[in-house]
Computed example of a mutant assay.
Amino acid sequence: MSKYSESQIIEIEVRLRQAMLNLDVAELDAFIAPELIFTSYLGQLVSKQQDLPIHQPGILKFRALMPSERYNQLNEGFSIVSVQMHILDSYEGTEIDQHYRFTRV
Rank of each mutant, 00 (worst) to 15 (best):
S2P: 06
Y4K: 06
Y4D: 02
Q8W: 01
I9D: 00
I10G: 01
I12L: 13
E13W: 05
V14S: 10
V14Q: 12
V14G: 08
R17F: 12
Q18E: 11
Q18A: 14
L21W: 05
N22T: 01
L23I: 01
L23T: 04
D24E: 15
V25T: 10
A26Q: 13
D29Q: 10
D29K: 12
A30K: 14
P34A: 13
E35Q: 12
L36Q: 09
I37N: 01
T39L: 13
S40F: 11
G43W: 09
G43E: 05
Q44T: 03
V46H: 00
K48D: 07
Q49M: 04
Q49F: 02
Q50N: 10
D51G: 03
Q56E: 08
G58Y: 03
K61D: 00
F62T: 00
A64K: 00
P67C: 09
R70E: 08
Y71C: 02
L74S: 11
L74P: 02
N75W: 15
N75A: 07
G77A: 09
F78I: 07
Q84I: 02
H86Q: 04
H86Y: 08
L88E: 06
S90E: 15
E92C: 02
E92F: 15
G93Y: 13
T94Y: 07
Y100V: 04
R101N: 04
